[in-house]
Computed example of a mutant assay.
Amino acid sequence: MLTCCDGEMVELYAQVSELMLTKQWFLTDGIAWVVKLVHQSPELEKVVADLVNSFNVVGVNEGIKQGFKAAHDSVRSAEEVPGYDEGAQDTLNAARKAFDDFHISILRKVADLVRCEKGL
């Protein structure tokens, strides 16, 4: 017959075993799952797309400016060239800031789950 302490030991052993399995899953599969979710997150997709698009537009503008310098007799300013985007630098600066400041919602959800598990 198990005494009260023996029953508590069995329960604690079961909890430790479950925690060990959870830790093992997290280290072998969980981290890869989180990274995959981060990689596929709409937040990351948006800030990377905005950053790439902004760099492209700024690059086009720089090309237009360099072309204007080479052929300045045909137009009065680079801003008159079709395709020149006057707000491209501001858009790029905003995209850079968004990239630096962006947060991935799934990571907050994981942190919330950990807090719930700990009873915080």
Rank of each mutant, 00 (worst) to 15 (best):
A32W: 02
H72S: 15
A32I: 02
F99C: 14
A88W: 06
Y84F: 15
G63R: 08
K65Y: 01
N56I: 06
D100K: 13
N53R: 11
N53W: 03
K69T: 05
P42W: 00
V47M: 08
H39M: 12
E86K: 14
R96V: 15
Q40G: 11
V35C: 07
S105N: 11
G87R: 11
S74Y: 07
G67Y: 00
P42Q: 11
V57C: 08
F68R: 00
V34R: 06
V60H: 07
L37M: 11
L92C: 10
L37W: 01
Q89Y: 10
L37R: 12
Q40T: 08
H72I: 00
A88G: 10
S54H: 06
S54E: 07
F102T: 04
G87F: 10
E45R: 14
V38G: 03
F102Q: 04
Q89S: 11
G30V: 05
H103I: 05
V52A: 09
E86H: 08
E79G: 00
K69A: 15
R76P: 00
D101V: 05
P82N: 08
S54A: 15
D101E: 15
D73N: 05
S105R: 09
V58C: 15
F102W: 01
N53S: 12
V48R: 13
L37I: 03
A49K: 11
I104N: 05
E43S: 11
G59M: 05
G83H: 06
R76G: 01
K69S: 10
V34W: 02
T28H: 07
V52M: 09
V75E: 07
I64Q: 02
I64N: 04
V38P: 02
G30I: 06
N93R: 09
L44D: 04
E43A: 14
S41Q: 09
A70I: 02
A88S: 10
A88H: 06
P82Y: 00
T91G: 08
A32L: 08
L37A: 12
E45W: 04
A94N: 11
S105W: 01
N53G: 08
S74H: 03
V38K: 02
